[in-house]
């Protein structure tokens, strides 16, 4: 199924969707959003690409195997909890680092961001693993 309209629209939509997914990921810090929903949106972008074009080119666009994405995501999410263990705090307690950037204002950096990015990657990886496996045959 090759539709020129879908393909043309997809080219621009994928970029917007991926950008939006990152926005959702970062917004989840203090407001509704977060790694899970961001990951789903990103996965939807790749799935759309797979429908408009084909699975092989989606895999090329992804640049790595979904399995690898799950692994990196799990490592980040799980690893973010270990940092607090090293600081003799319970597993998964998140540590915060506050800093002032001149001209930008105060920002909080937390190990939680690492966790959220990990979730983001795991969700993309799992969803795409299933979608691509199912649509490949």
């Amino acid at each position: 199924m090759k539709s020129l309209i879908l393909q043309t629209a997809t080219r621009s939509l994928v970029a917007v969707l991926l950008l939006f997914s990152i926005f959702l990921l970062l917004r989840g810090h203090d407001e509704p959003g977060g790694g899970f929903i961001g990951g789903l949106v990103a996965a939807a972008a790749f799935a759309l690409y797979a429908i408009a074009f084909d699975v092989a080119s989606t895999r090329r666009m992804l640049g790595m195997r979904p399995q690898m994405m799950i692994a990196i995501g799990l490592a980040m999410a799980g690893g973010s909890g270990v940092i607090s263990l090293l600081a003799s705090r319970p597993y998964l307690e998140h540590l915060w680092y506050h800093t002032d950037i001149p001209g930008f204002g105060e920002i909080h950096l937390g190990t939680f961001l690492l966790f959220d990015i990990g979730v983001f990657l795991v969700v993309i990886g799992v969803t795409l693993l299933v979608i691509l496996t199912l649509s490949e045959e």
Partner: peptide, 19 residues
Amino acid sequence: DLLVALPIVIPLATGVIAL
């Protein structure tokens, strides 16, 4: 804290590294 978390963290880490 570490001792109780380890039996969960070790398989997770092993699985992730193997992946």
